[in-house]
């Protein structure tokens, strides 16, 4: 079914356009303005052209070094949590009970971590992981593992990653579960008649049906982990040293901590650009996948 062309539809979109433009375009213009200037306080600004951008992309300067290091850490973090959360989410979705009250119970418990304010998520894990008062830290240290997320880089990383897995795997699982629910029973019966193995059913029936939701899941998880701020900030404060300082944490340090508006603005723009590019790639892949599916359905 093709959509009709109707330019008056713009009137329906106008409120959204105005609200989002007010809170996205206006602030972004301030950012662009700041990114070309330097300030010595007292609201005095000096033209700096593309100086900040040059510094930002040059690892030998202080700003560039900090930005590129935090970018590297952040990409590594995003890849690790995607590699854990996507397979685990699929497994959990496949493990959902089929009917009865347990379905609702499982869904509610799965969704619970998603609705906890992000700093409380940080607080929960901060308390849980402390060697003196937290269950996890206490048990680990008593079975002979020397675990302390405050002083040890690797422990801090493990804590932040486990926390993210705890926080967000449910989102992947719920999305996959929704995809699985839409598979008609007849598909499974046909597979049974053909004598398909468990693995074949997964590969030929379940995975293709989950494709679209999985794409949404990967997109949301990548984006949200790429701009993660509150949870690691509460737990580790970016430390020990700088070992868990992600891009957003670095940015807030520069902008609201040092009030280095020019540097912060330049960083913001580059950061936003990276997000925009990744977002565009996903969007293209997603619309292409949608079109292909339509073509297949049309041909059948």
């Amino acid at each position: 079914m093709d959509k009709t062309v109707n330019q008056k539809a713009w009137f329906l979109v106008l409120p959204v356009f105005l609200v989002v433009a007010f809170s996205a375009v206006l602030p972004l213009m301030t950012v662009v303005n700041y990114s070309m200037q330097d300030t010595f306080g007292n609201n005095q600004f000096f033209w700096n052209g593309v100086g900040w951008f040059k510094e930002l992309l040059d690892p030998s300067t202080d700003l560039g070094g900090r930005f590129l290091a935090s970018l590297g850490r952040n990409l590594f973090f995003s890849l690790v949590i995607l590699a854990i959360e996507v397979p685990l989410g699929i497994v959990v979705a496949l493990s959902m009970p089929r009917q009865g009250w347990t379905v609702a119970a499982c869904l509610v418990i799965l969704a619970l971590p998603l609705l906890i304010p992000w700093n409380v998520v940080g607080t929960i894990w901060q308390i849980f992981g402390r060697p003196d008062i937290g269950l996890l830290g206490y048990v680990l240290n008593h079975i002979g593992i020397d675990y302390n997320y405050v002083s040890n880089d690797i422990d801090a990383w493990v804590t932040v990653i486990v926390m993210d897995v705890w926080h967000w795997t449910s989102l992947v699982a719920l999305l996959c579960y929704a995809g699985l629910k839409s598979i008609p029973e007849a598909y499974y019966q046909a597979a049974q008649i053909d004598g398909a193995s468990r693995w074949a059913v997964f590969k030929a029936i379940q995975l293709p049906k989950m494709n679209r939701v999985l794409l949404i899941a990967v997109l949301l998880r990548f984006m949200d982990s790429f701009m993660i701020y509150t949870e690691p900030f509460v737990v580790t404060g970016g430390g020990p040293g700088n070992s868990t300082t992600f891009v957003s944490i670095e940015l807030v340090k520069i902008a609201l901590g040092q009030f280095d508006l020019g540097k912060a603005a330049a960083l913001s723009l580059v950061y936003n650009l990276i997000i925009l590019i990744v977002c565009w790639i996903f969007y293209t892949v997603m619309t292409n996948a949608g079109n292909e599916r339509k073509h297949q359905e049309g041909a059948a």
Binding site: S248, Y271, I275
Partner: peptide
């Protein structure tokens, strides 16, 4: 815009 990092917008 859904994907834009909040940290970018905090100051503006």
């Amino acid at each position: 815009n859904r994907m834009a990092p909040a940290a970018v917008y905090a100051l503006p």
